[in-house]
Design a protein around this nucleic acid. Structure first.
Lengths: 204, 204
DNA sequence: AAACGATTTAACTAAATGGTTAACAAAAGT
DNA sequence: ACTTTTGTTAACCATTTAGTTAAATCGTTT
């Protein structure tokens, strides 16, 4: 068994550098030279590992989505009851994004600029399915545990309340006149408050 | 009084073309040639009216924000009582974005890529102020009309629920397995449902 | 030591891109 | 009428950019 540490390292170094640059600047704003610099290698080696900018970008994007998908599955495919699920999801999602601050914006952004991407994603075997969540919500409504509303709307609301504060951070900070430090405190509190908010909105 | 129709038309033609291209492709993805084509003029004329890509972009961005600001003022600086305000805002905001689908994503996006922009915006005289809303919410809490929560969190929730479904449309369509047509129907329903959702969440 | 893969260097290409120039046309001012 | 200003164009320029190539170096394996 040969030690291919050096080999493997550069490859992930590149991927990591590319992630940083792409997430900061987007596909169009990113420069191959900048990625090479950030990875501590030269531009030729980039093309040695990933033939083109497009392929490198796709690798980064797939990686990013692979990271996000399990988070979404916390709400779509999890066995806990609806209120627990909402609590768990908000807490874990906010923790997750605090660790990967550029990720949601990156994904949403490139998905907007490239809607065929979304199409391709859904065709993937590992793409989260909506069915289980749909059934759970409809069952809760029948059992009069929550107010009647379509699963789709509830899902959109849950994701909106959790994801938007990160995506629109600069705007919201400006509008609500909050400093960076205060904003972080506020986000931290949302781990509980968002769940409460949603539960109050739907509980019967 | 001379008729400067021709003059004025090309200038706004450019601004309009630039708006379309910038909102579709972003600052980095947009090409001056494409803007010129869309405006039906020569590239040199772009630089005649707006000296550089940067200046043209800033003109487009300011215009976009000027369009959005009054919407935000519907929630921040309006005299109606809190429940009416929420209903009015969701209805009018959703109608507004249906007319300008690319606008929220454009603003949030470029604000993320360029956080100094946000700083500059807040310094503008016409930038919405948060004070009135803050007082209103705190008064409602004291009067036991709504549950206790900070005005900032409520504000973030309101904006999130209204704006995110547009910004993340491709992702949400994919996740909840909704066609474009169905999604529009769903958005239309949100004009009422989002307001209900929020009011249920906060009403005592 | 030969062979191999990983990596660097450095020069290069071809296309795209933002921006300029100079000349021309059309209005407006005199 | 003619001069000045404003609007518009085609051709051009300088720079940037993704991507290539070919030769050299270095480390590991055989």
């Amino acid at each position: 068994m040969t030690i291919k540490t050096k080999n493997t390292n550069t490859e992930t170094d590149i991927l990591n550098a590319a992630k940083n640059v792409f997430q900061r600047k987007g596909m169009d704003g990113a420069r191959m030279q900048e990625i090479a610099d950030e990875a501590g290698i030269n531009k030729a080696l980039l093309h040695y590992y990933y033939r083109s900018k497009k392929l490198l970008f796709e690798a980064v994007f797939k990686n990013a989505f692979k990271l996000l998908a399990p988070q979404l599955n916390n709400v779509l495919n999890d066995d806990s009851d609806i209120f627990e699920k909402i609590k768990n999801f908000t807490d874990s999602y906010i923790s997750f994004v605090l660790k990967h601050p550029y990720l949601p914006n990156f994904i949403i952004n490139e998905l907007n600029r490239n809607p065929e991407f979304a199409q391709k994603l859904t065709e993937d075997k590992h793409f989260p399915s909506f069915e289980k969540f749909k059934k759970q919500i409809n069952d809760c409504i029948t059992a009069k545990i929550i107010r009647p509303l379509t699963p789709e709307q509830l899902f959109i609301n849950i994701i909106s309340l959790n994801a938007f504060p990160f995506i629109a951070a600069p705007l919201l900070k400006g509008l609500a006149d909050i400093s960076d430090k205060e904003y972080n405190v506020l986000i931290e509190k949302r781990k509980n408050e968002v769940a409460e908010f949603i539960i109050n909105a739907i509980k019967l």
